[in-house]
Amino acid sequence: MHSLSKKELKLLNSKKGLKQFLLNDGISKTKVLRNLTYEVRIKKLQEELIKLQNWVTENNEKIVVLFEGRDAAGKGGAIRRITQHLNPREFKVVALPKPTTEEEGQWYFQRYINKLPREGKIVFFDRSWYNRAVVEPVNDFCTQEQYDIFMDQVNDFERMIIQSGIRLIKLYFSITKEEQAMRFEAIKSNPIKKWKFSNVDQNALRLWDVYTEYKCKMFEHTNTEIAPWTIIKANKKTEARIEAIEYILDVIPYNPKDETIIEHVEIEEKVID
C-alpha cells in the first residue's frame, strides 16, 4: 500500500476508523479508508440535499425522481441514503404494490397521478409507471395491447406533468447479470432480507435477455429531450449512490448551491448490461 497521507492517517485513527478495525477482524486499511471516504463524501452531499429540500419548500417547487433498474440493482438503498436526513414531512417515497381490482379498471397512469407532489414537495418513486414498459410485459402481467397503449401515451403524459411545473428526473440503475446473481444469493442467504426475494426475482436471471430487449425499447422510445434517462452504473453500490445524488444536485437549480461539493455527472447514452 502507498504511504499514508496525514488526512488518511487521521481517518484511520478516528473513532469510526478504529471501530471498523475492532468490529471487522482482518479488514484491510484500504477497505477502511474506502468506507470512511464514502461516509465523508455522502455526508457532504446529504447536507446539499437538505439545502435543495429547503429551496423546494421555500419556492413551492415540485420534484419527481424515478428510480428504475433490474431487481437488486440498489434502487432502494440509494433512496434511503438520499432521504436519510431530509425532513420527512416534505417528501414521500412511493413503492406501489400490485394494482387492486379497482385500479386495474382505471386509466393506467391514474394511480401514479394520485401520488404526484403538491407544491413544495419531493416524491421518489421506487419503480414507477415504467413497470409497464419492462417488468409487466416480461412477466406477462399485461397484454400486448396494454403495453402498446402505454408506449403510445407515456411521452405525452410526461410532457403534461412537466408543463404543469413538475421537475422530472429519470434514473436507471444498471448492473451486470453476474452482479445480479451474486446479490440474489446474498439476499436469499440473509435471514432478515430473504423475504425480499420474490417470484419475479426468481425469474429475473432466466429472463435476462427478455428484460434487455424491453429495456432497450424503453430507452429508444422514452429518452426524450424534455425527459431524458440518466444511467447510473450500479455494480458498486456506494459509487452508484454518490453518482445518483451528485446528478440530482447538479440538475436541480437550487440556491445556495456549493458547486465545489458537486462533481458534474455525464449522462450515459448507453447502458452496460
Rank of each mutant, 00 (worst) to 15 (best):
N203Y: 14
A186K: 02
N190T: 05
I192Y: 08
V200G: 09
K194M: 12
V210N: 11
N203L: 15
N199K: 12
I187G: 01
V200W: 00
I187C: 04
S198E: 00
I187R: 01
N203F: 13
Y214F: 13
N203S: 14
A204G: 01
K193C: 05
S189P: 01
Y211D: 07
S198K: 00
S198N: 00
R206T: 15
S198F: 06
Q202F: 15
E213H: 10
E185L: 05
P191C: 10
S198G: 01
Q202R: 14
D201Y: 11
Y211I: 08
I187A: 03
Y211M: 09
N190R: 02
A204Q: 02
A204D: 04
E185T: 07
T212E: 08
E213A: 13
I187W: 06
N190Y: 01
T212G: 11
K196C: 04
Y211A: 09
S189H: 01
K193G: 05
K194T: 13
V210T: 14
E213C: 12
K188I: 06
S198D: 02
N199M: 10
W208E: 02
K194N: 14
N199P: 11
E185D: 12
I187P: 00
D201K: 06
I187H: 00
E185K: 03
F197W: 05
R206W: 14
R206Y: 15
T212L: 13
N199Q: 11
N199A: 10
A186E: 13
N190M: 04
D201M: 07
D201F: 08
S189C: 03
N199R: 11
D201H: 09
N190W: 03
T212K: 04
K196G: 00
K194C: 11
V210H: 11
P191M: 12
R206Q: 15
N203I: 15
K194V: 14
L207P: 11
K193R: 08
N199W: 10
T212W: 03
I192K: 07
Q202Y: 13
I192R: 04
I192V: 07
L207I: 11
V200Q: 06
I192H: 03
S198Y: 00
D201P: 04
W195V: 09
I187N: 02
S198A: 02
